[in-house]
Computed example of a mutant assay.
Amino acid sequence: MKRSVQLLLALTAALTLAACSTTKPEEEQVDTSAQDAAAQAEAEALARQRAAEEAERQRIAALLENNVVYFDFDDDSIRSEYVELLEAHAKYIQSSGKSVVLEGHADERGTPEYNLALGERRAKSVAQLMRTYGVSDSSIEVISFGEEAPANPAHNEEAWQENRRVEIKYQ
């Protein structure tokens, strides 16, 4: 009898120790692996999202560094290559609360009066596009210098191209 009680106590102790064991059943180990994989996938997705956001910030910053829009000869229409640039500037104006001066310029060909009017039309074209992106009239000032403030004083096609422009200046 004593022997069976001792055997029973030993068996109970062994079962108690087994129940308190730190090894997890196989099902729980699989769940942990699945949780680890899900956490890793979530971390990777978050890292990709942050990288994409940073790339977008850098793209916008690069656009905002350019503050000149060039035009074709005797033309005041905005080239398609500048639409994204002007959209970025418009969003910046709205978010910063700053105002902008749009300075229109022309090359030396044509009369001074004609070039003054052409510079104004170019600046107004830029202003109109900015308004379509939500910039208020009170945030935009339009000035024309005509041919009076050339970016390049030479008298050739390359210089004339540089002079047919609108400069975006923040206040």
Score class of each variant (00 low, 15 high):
115 N>P: 01
144 S>F: 04
155 H>E: 08
4 S>A: 13
3 R>T: 15
14 A>V: 10
160 W>E: 04
147 E>Q: 12
6 Q>G: 07
5 V>Y: 04
94 Q>R: 08
149 A>F: 10
168 I>H: 01
153 P>K: 07
40 Q>V: 12
136 S>I: 08
105 H>R: 06
89 H>G: 01
153 P>M: 04
109 R>A: 09
12 T>M: 11
161 Q>Y: 05
127 A>F: 00
152 N>F: 03
35 Q>Y: 14
102 L>T: 01
71 F>V: 05
33 S>D: 12
98 K>V: 04
59 R>S: 10
67 N>P: 00
25 P>T: 10
146 G>A: 08
13 A>N: 09
148 E>H: 06
37 A>S: 07
54 E>A: 15
28 E>D: 13
76 D>I: 00
48 R>T: 06
48 R>M: 10
94 Q>P: 02
31 D>Y: 13
116 L>G: 03
24 K>N: 11
68 V>E: 02
59 R>E: 13
20 C>L: 14
61 A>S: 15
15 L>D: 09
74 D>R: 09
86 L>E: 03
142 V>S: 02
125 S>I: 05
20 C>A: 10
158 E>A: 08
138 S>T: 15
91 K>L: 11
113 E>S: 13
41 A>I: 05
65 E>K: 08
76 D>W: 02
8 L>I: 15
101 V>Y: 08
132 T>V: 13
124 K>A: 11
114 Y>E: 14
138 S>L: 12
54 E>F: 03
32 T>I: 15
138 S>A: 15
4 S>L: 14
56 E>F: 15
107 D>R: 00
19 A>E: 07
61 A>W: 05
26 E>Q: 12
